[in-house]
């Protein structure tokens, strides 16, 4: 799924990386614990988080994350945005909660890190609407 599509689904503001919205994201992960990100995240993953301090951007860089979405309108400081710009990590800001953001992306077809290819059971006709 392209970042531009993710931005549209989450009605997100682009804090940095407007030129990289055609980037493909293969999966997503939600965490409010850096330790979890370091243990669980795979490369080119989209991270949804409620943490806004600069270590999030440093962690994203170390883990080769595709982009970061800050949820519930939590805006990172200018140092974090500048560091992300320097490292080519797009940052999005959504006013939706973590649960809502993750749910919308999951049901739009963006799988979790266990790479479930059919998150909402569409292939089996389990999902309606």
């Amino acid at each position: 799924m392209k970042l531009a599509h993710i931005q549209q689904i989450l009605q997100a503001e682009v804090l940095t990386g407007a030129g990289s919205l055609d980037r493909e994201v293969g999966m997503a992960f939600s965490a409010d614990l850096i330790s979890d990100i370091l243990v669980m995240c795979k490369e080119h993953t989209l991270l949804l988080t409620g943490m806004t301090h600069i270590q999030i951007v440093k962690t994203a860089e170390i883990c080769d994350l595709a982009a970061v979405v800050f949820v519930r309108g939590k805006r990172p400081g200018p140092e974090a945005i500048a560091l992300a710009a320097q490292n080519d990590i797009p940052l999005l800001l959504s006013s939706l909660t973590m649960y809502e953001s993750a749910g919308l992306l999951y049901c739009a077809g963006l799988p979790g890190i266990s790479r479930n290819p059919d998150p909402c059971g569409r292939a089996k006709g389990e999902r309606t609407g």
Partner: peptide, 15 residues
């Protein structure tokens, strides 16, 4: 509160 110190660092290094 910063999201560190969950007691997963050393096991993750080993991994």
């Amino acid at each position: 509160e910063l999201g560190f110190g969950a007691g997963m660092g050393l096991p993750n290094i080993k991994r």
